[in-house]
Amino acid sequence: MEHVELFFKSIFIDNMVFATFLGMCSYLAVSKKVSTAVGLGAAVIFVLAITVPLNWLLDQYILQPGALSWLGEEYASYDLSFLSFIMFIATIATMVQLVEIVVEKFSPALYNSLGIFLPLIAVNCAILGGSLFMQSREIATLGLALNYGIASGIGWFLAILAIAAIREKIRYSSVPPALRGLGITFIITGLMAIGFMSFGGMLTGGDESAKPEEKAATIEVIEEDINEEETTTKSDLEIAQNTNK
């Protein structure tokens, strides 16, 4: 159940593009044609599915405060979390390069479809963002980390596929000249993001009391700007939880 929930939450509610604006650069640059968008989207799923679990292991056994205790008692007090940016990005850059070599060797067909996008991906913020959110949301197990990586990749894939399809169609519409190209793409993405916001109620619909804590935490991370209503319900929930304890 936990897996299913995280899966759908990462695809729809915390969609990388629409909720957190990760990977916008390549999202805008490579979305002119559906076929290239599919290639890049598939590469993002692929790389996220590899790097997020890998960085989870790094985080768990090397970087977290006290993570080095498996080496022995005297290492338990080390806190290397300030190194996480550099470790994560180094892992991602190396993995991307490694994946490129392996795919080229064993599956030339896949290489031809993903190949040119792989180097681009090392500097795609969606990939690093996936790892950083994995760290800040404190995902508990390796399985969940893998799940999170794949699901956020799928979310990104859906987003770029949708915008590429819309951009192919919009070429035949009469957009005001100054808005053509980039301007209208921004505004369409904004409207799509509003649409995706409506998924927010998807997981809380039935059992609002069951998972209030987790939900409130996600909202807090993404939008510090919670309106008054949400703040009151959140504090109410906190009070309720405290009394339960």
């Binding site: 629409f18 100054a178 053509r180 301007g183 793409t185 921004f186 505004i187 904004g190 916001m197």
Partner: peptide, 30 residues
């Protein structure tokens, strides 16, 4: 309150691009 939600950032940038390209016609894309 809508301005504080994330989608409005995209729309505000879209409008900035619109204003900028209206003032400088050379930047308009085909």
């Amino acid at each position: 309150g809508f301005m504080l939600l994330s989608p409005m950032a995209l729309i505000v940038v879209g409008i900035i691009i619109w204003v900028q390209r209206t003032r400088n016609k050379a930047l308009i894309e085909d």
